[in-house]
C-alpha cells in the first residue's frame, strides 16, 4: 500500500518536497492557505544574485508537481493535528479529515510588518515602501511615488525588523542585504538618473555571488553605501522624507532629504507556522522559528516523530538553501516511512 504524506505549505519548500515525494511514488496532499501555490515567490519579480525572473523558478516547481500523485488543497488551513498510533489525523478548516503516515511542515516565513518600526513612518508617510512593495512596482513596471512622480533620490534602509532587540528579533535575516543590493541595481536600471543610497549596519554578503553583486552595484550602477542605522524619518513641507543617520565611518551625523524610502523588511516565523506549533505541540526556539532536534544533523527533524520541517519555517534561507533543505526533508521522510511498521 502506498504511503501518504501531508505537506503543510505550498511555497518553495512545500512544492519541492511534494514533487520529490511524488517522484518516488508517495502520495502527497499539499495544503496551501492561499488560492494558489507558490508562496512568496509569486510576489517577487527578479531573484538575486543573477536577477533571473522568478517565474523561471516557479515553472520548475510547477513542473515538479505536475507528475500526478499530488493533491493540492488551496484555501485550506489546518485546525487539528493529532497523532494516533503510527498515523496522523489532520482536520482542515473545511472539516475534512486527512490521515497521513508523515507530515512535513513547510509553513515558511512572514515578512516583518514594517509599521512596527513607527519611527520610519511606514503607513504614516506617503512615500515609505517595503522591499515587497518595490517588487510589486517592478512587476507592474511602474516605479513611482504615491502621487505618480518619478523619484530622484531613493534611500534603502537595511535591517528593518532584523538584528533589532526593540522588536524582539535578535537574529539576522541574512537576505535583506543582498535584496537591497539587487533592488538598488534594479532602481538604477529603471531610473538611470536616480541616486540610490543604502544605509547598512554591516554588509552581510555571505552567499554565492553576493559579493560580486555588491561590487557590480558600486562599479556599474554607482549605488552609494553609507554605514549607519537610520534612527528616524520625518516628512518635510515639500513632501520629502528627511532621514537622520550617523555616517559612522565619517563620524558625523548626516541628514538627507529623499523622495522615497525603501525598508528591507526582515523574515519572521509565519503566523501559520505559529498556529501549527500551537495545535501540534511543536517546539519553537527563542527566535520563534521551529526548533529542529539538532542544528547540524537534524535540521529537518521536529520533536514529534513523523513530523518534519522544510525550508524557512526553521530559519531565514534563500531559495537555493530552501530547495536543498526541502530535499533533505524528503530523505528524512523516506527513511522514516521505511522504518515505521
Amino acid at each position: 500500500m502506498s504511503k501518504h504524506v501531508v505537506v503543510i505549505g505550498g511555497g518553495v519548500a512545500g512544492l519541492e518536497v511534494a514533487g520529490q515525494l511524488s517522484k518516488v511514488g508517495i502520495e502527497v496532499s499539499l495544503i496551501e492557505k492561499e488560492n494558489k501555490s507558490g508562496g512568496h515567490l509569486n510576489n517577487w519579480y527578479r531573484l538575486f544574485p543573477d536577477r533571473r525572473n522568478s517565474t523561471e523558478v516557479k515553472e520548475y516547481l510547477d513542473g515538479m508537481t505536475h507528475n500526478g500523485g499530488i493533491k493540492l488543497l488551496t484555501n485550506t488551513t489546518i485546525e487539528k493535528l493529532n497523532r494516533s498510533g503510527s498515523h496522523f489525523s489532520i482536520t482542515t478548516n473545511e472539516g475534512k479529515e486527512l490521515i497521513a503516515d508523515a507530515v512535513i511542515v513547510a509553513t515558511g516565513f512572514d515578512l516583518f510588518k514594517s509599521a512596527r518600526k513607527e519611527e520610519y513612518g511606514y503607513g504614516i508617510y506617503d512615500n515609505v515602501f517595503t522591499s515587497a512593495d518595490l517588487e510589486e512596482m517592478f512587476k507592474k513596471g511602474e516605479l513611482a511615488l504615491t502621487n505618480g512622480i518619478v523619484p530622484e533620490t531613493i534611500g534603502i534602509i537595511h535591517c528593518v525588523g532584523s538584528r533589532d532587540e526593540k522588536v524582539g528579533n535578535f537574529y539576522c535575516s541574512k537576505l535583506c542585504c543582498v535584496t537591497a543590493v539587487k533592488q538598488a541595481i534594479e532602481i538604477r536600471e529603471y531610473l538611470p538618473d536616480s541616486k540610490v543610497f543604502c544605509f547598512y549596519m554591516d554588509m552581510r554578503m555571505g552567499g554565492a555571488f553576493y559579493e560580486e553583486l555588491y561590487r557590480e552595484a558600486q562599479e556599474k550602477w554607482g549605488v552609494n553605501f553609507i554605514r549607519g542605522k537610520v534612527s528616524e524619518a520625518s516628512e518635510t513641507i515639500e513632501n520629502k522624507l528627511l532621514i537622520k543617520v550617523e555616517d559612522t565611518l565619517a563620524g558625523r551625523p548626516l541628514k538627507m532629504k529623499l523622495d522615497m524610502l525603501v525598508l528591507m523588511a526582515g523574515m519572521e516565523m509565519s503566523e501559520g507556522g505559529k498556529k501549527i506549533a500551537g495545535i501540534g505541540g511543536l517546539r519553537t526556539g527563542e527566535n520563534r522559528f521551529f526548533a529542529a532536534t539538532d542544528n547540524h544533523f537534524g535540521s529537518n527533524k521536529s520533536n514529534i516523530e513523523g513530523v518534519f520541517y522544510a525550508g524557512t519555517c526553521t530559519a531565514p534561507m534563500n531559495i537555493t538553501e530552501t530547495i536543498s533543505h526541502a530535499r533533505a526533508a524528503v530523505v528524512e521522510v523516506i527513511d522514516y516511512l521505511k522504518n515505521s511498521k
Partner: peptide, 23 residues
C-alpha cells in the same frame, strides 16, 4: 554596541552641536 550609530543619529544634542555618543 555594534557601532551602528543609531544613537548619534537620533541624538537631541547632536541636533545642536558636535556630539556623537557612539564615538
Amino acid at each position: 554596541c555594534i557601532e551602528c550609530g543609531g544613537c548619534s543619529a537620533t541624538c537631541t544634542t547632536s541636533n545642536f552641536t558636535v556630539f556623537s555618543l557612539r564615538e
